[in-house]
Design a protein around this nucleic acid. Structure first.
Lengths: 115, 115
DNA sequence: AAAATATATATAATTATATGCTTATATCTT
DNA sequence: AAGATATAAGCATATAATTATATATATTTT
C-alpha cells in the first residue's frame, strides 16, 4: 500500500528544503552518478571551499550523504541506507543528468588527483 | 527514457524549496485529495488568514495550484496541468495521507460553508 | 626522524538577503 | 454593511555566502 515508504511530513519538508537549493540539488544529483570530493565540487560550482563544505555538512547532518576520508581528500557519496533515499531517487528522476560535469572535470585535469 | 519528464534543475530546486515548508507541503498534500478553500486552511493550520493567503500565492505563482472563486470563497486545487505535477505526485507518495484533516473539518462544522 | 611546509577540508564569525509571520488595510462578493 | 480573501508594511529569524582561522594529512627539508 501507499503508506509503506511514507515519511513524517515535517521531516520530509526538511529534506525537500535541503534539496530546494540549486547547488545542493546538483550535488546530490551528481552523487547519484559518482562519488565526488570537496575540491571537485569547488571547481564545478565556482564557489568558495567553505561554502561547499557547509552545503555538504547540511546534507550529511540529515543523512543524505556520507563521507569517507581518502588521504588528504574527503570523498562524498549518496547514502543509500538513508531513510530518504527512495524519495531522493524519485526526485532526481525529474532532473536532467549531470554526467557531463564529470567529463568536464576529467578534461580539465581536476579529476585525477582523487584517484 | 529517463529524460522525458525531466525539468530544468534550477526550476526544480525552486519547486522543492516551496514544498520544503511543512505548511505548504501539507497544503499540497491535502489538495491532492480534495479541493480546499482558504478559510478551511486557516482552521487547519491555526495560522492567520494572511499567512495562509501568502503560502497559497507562492504555490499559485509557480503554477502548482490554481484558484477558483465560488461566491465569496476562493477554492484552491492542485493544477494537474502543471509541468511539475508528476514531480509533486512522486513526492507526495512519500508523505502520509492527511484525509483525516477533512473529516476533522466536517466534524467541526468548517466544511459545510463551502458547498 | 623531526620539523617545517603545503594541501585539503572544517569551523567560526560576519554580513547581506530571503523567508515566514503578524498587524493593518484594501478589495471583492453577498 | 458584513464576510472572505488579498495585499502592504514591518519585524524577527533563517539562510547562503564570504573571509579568517583551525585541523588534519602529505610532503619536503634538514
Amino acid at each position: 500500500m501507499k503508506e509503506e515508504n511514507t515519511q513524517d511530513l515535517k521531516e520530509t519538508a526538511n529534506v525537500l528544503k535541503l534539496l530546494g537549493d540549486k547547488t545542493r540539488l546538483s550535488m546530490v544529483n551528481m552523487l547519484s552518478e559518482q562519488e565526488c570530493c570537496v575540491c571537485e565540487f569547488v571547481e564545478i560550482f565556482q564557489m568558495s571551499q567553505p561554502a561547499i563544505s557547509q552545503h555538504l555538512r547540511k546534507l550529511k547532518d540529515i543523512g543524505i550523504v556520507k563521507e569517507q576520508r581518502k588521504g588528504q581528500w574527503v570523498v562524498y557519496s549518496l547514502n543509500t541506507e538513508s531513510e530518504y533515499y527512495l524519495l531522493i531517487k524519485d526526485v532526481l528522476n525529474h532532473v536532467p543528468s549531470e554526467r557531463d560535469k564529470f567529463t568536464w572535470l576529467e578534461k580539465n585535469g581536476f579529476r585525477i588527483i582523487c584517484n
